[in-house]
Design a protein around this nucleic acid. Structure first.
Lengths: 346, 346
DNA sequence: TGTTAGCACTCTAACATGGTGAGTGCTAAA
DNA sequence: TTTAGCACTCACCATGTTAGAGTGCTAACA
């Protein structure tokens, strides 16, 4: 069976209507609302074909039709109207990014919040990966005799605090010296660069009395930049879920809330797809995560120095407004890439 | 009318039953379940009295009785069984506090999470007040030419990062010198101590070329420690709300969620009462905040150096398990006060 | 005087019933 | 190929009915 122009028009009508009303839509309603010059009976025949093709489904015998995952897939792949982000939105996003490009970890939280506010969906973001970044500066700040705050600033302007308990109790002058040595030895390095030789070099360069302390600090540094455990993942606008009739059952909402608090789940979602900065869409059951099978994910990676660095995803019900989500997300990613590009270029 | 022993026993039965079942309870059920040697008819008479006294109410004519705010108030003030925190819980909380006493800001988040997990309610906490704390150490860490991270460590071990945009572009050596000057001049000071004279003193002590930068940093420092805007308030276990039948209506849940994201609302709640480290309970309509009139708040302040420093509150439906919430909260506050006491003493 | 059994009454929740409207599929005619 | 017409299905709503839980009142009892 071939998907001719008329079938497409009807499919679009069904999807657009369902996106805004969340109610199944019938042939008569289409005939009245979108006057496309054919009767409801003809539409009925076409709809029967669309159902046979798996693009729409009927919740029950005498109800209207609802788009299926496959229908949304067709819509997203082929029927998406091009839509530009509004001037206001663009200006707002750009300003936010420029204002906060010197604190990228904070910026990512703001972005999650802003996208959620603009779309009324939930937004998840991951901080830039540590394993591909280099250390721009580090500093030890005393807290008490036996612990310091390690402050790390990366080339992508992510600032990280870690309180490090020390094996011995170096004085302030010794901390200063350690900071100087560590800065000199580790600056500009990324995780792969920090080898056993580097560690020995550092041990040899700090004062005798605080080698144990330096070892403590170095072990935290390596653990932070080697594995991604230190990388934060944020979810913004989680409560928006409660506004969708899909989640009027508190139990369903609770399950999704629970899932959105699981870091591993968010990481899985943000790692799905090819990680490019193209917009990718995962519809309903296409998502690897169980709790998400009634939701869709619109995601894109952002880049720094030519490599994928982190991801942003918008989560909504499968009947979400894909055009809006994709438009805003693409605007955000474009701006971030530009701002981060200037950072690595300059 | 006098609240004799038998009335009290019946009131307790009603409250305890309602706390665990959330269903109105009738005279026959009480007679059967709690065999107190009197018939349902007698209980009926007593319940009629209790209603007249305003301690219980009937949702509708042929339903059982439900405790009123006044009933809970009576229960909380006079009838509360003494209950000790379990050994396991005590050990767990104590360990968590000891482990994180060198990063009190992080600790407060952990506490919110832990209390929510133990009680299944929502927990809100406020970080220690800045205006009563002194600066133990500060450090400037370069981010790019025109911005630095200001790291503040207070005597109560709260670590704060603030990115400060600078009016000029000091070099690394100049930043070091500024850090040294600022540390020397501001260490041990609290907000009231930082006067115009101190600021002038600092301006005179830093190198000519970075006076503007120093002014930028000082303005951030004073704004952070003077007003409480810098103080964080966290809510943990917000999603627990969805487990209570009181919030099976998504709309109600959504409104409360919304309120719990409003910083001002949380501050208002945490500032209610006398701010002592005694446990205080606000039941239903006793709360100043509208969205909380179906909820109760169990709160206590924690102390440092003999002064009130911040607060912790547990939020649940009015039929919450007050004994459990009060027991756990009092255990937490006791431990925090002890740990912070050692901090200020040592 | 306090307690209890008994009874009439009230109200909700649950279930059954029937009508309405939205929707479908099928068929025959244009 | 399109359309009008028709029979049919099903959710939804209003209505009616019943069962059950609960109450208040009264009269009898200890």
């Amino acid at each position: 069976m071939v998907l001719n122009k008329r079938k497409i028009k009807i499919l679009e009508a069904i999807i657009n209507d369902y996106i805004s009303t969340a109610e199944p839509i019938g042939s008569r309603t289409i005939a009245k609302k979108y006057n496309m010059g054919i009767s409801s009976a003809t539409i009925r025949n076409e709809m029967s074909d669309l159902e046979e093709m798996g693009l729409i489904v009927q919740p029950h015998a005498s109800a209207g039709r609802v788009p299926s995952d496959k229908g949304y897939r067709m819509y997203v792949d082929n029927l998406l109207p091009k839509h530009e982000i509004t001037q206001d939105e663009a200006a707002f996003l750009q300003q936010m990014i420029i204002n906060n490009i010197n604190q990228v970890d904070f910026l990512m939280k703001e972005i999650a919040r802003a996208i959620s506010a603009l779309t009324t969906y939930t937004t998840i973001v991951s901080e830039p990966k540590f394993c591909r970044t280099t250390i721009k500066h580090l500093q030890l700040v005393p807290v008490d005799e036996r612990s310091v705050v390690l402050v790390l600033v990366t080339d992508s302007n992510v600032v990280k605090n870690h309180v490090v308990p020390l094996a011995d109790a170096p004085g302030y002058a010794q901390l200063q010296q350690m900071t100087a040595v560590l800065n000199e030895k580790v600056k500009g390095m990324c995780s792969e660069d920090i080898s056993g030789a580097v560690l020995e070099d550092i041990a040899g360069s700090v004062e005798q009395g605080c080698r144990a302390a330096a070892a403590c600090v170095m072990s935290v540094i390596t653990s932070v930049i080697e594995n991604e455990d230190g990388r934060q993942v944020y979810a913004g606008g989680v409560k928006n879920i409660l506004t969708f009739p899909e989640f009027s059952d508190v139990d369903k909402a609770h399950r999704l809330f629970h899932a959105l608090e699981e870091r591993d789940m968010l990481i899985t979602l943000l790692n799905s797809g090819d990680g490019s900065d193209d917009i990718q869409v995962f519809i309903g059951a296409e998502n690897s995560v169980d709790e998400m099978k009634n939701c869709s994910l619109v995601k894109a990676g952002y880049r720094f120095g030519g490599r994928n660095y982190g991801s942003i995803g918008v989560i909504g019900p499968t009947r979400m407004n894909y055009v809006q989500a994709m438009t805003i997300l693409s605007g955000v990613v474009k701006n971030i890439n530009k701002a981060l590009g200037e950072l690595s270029g300059g």
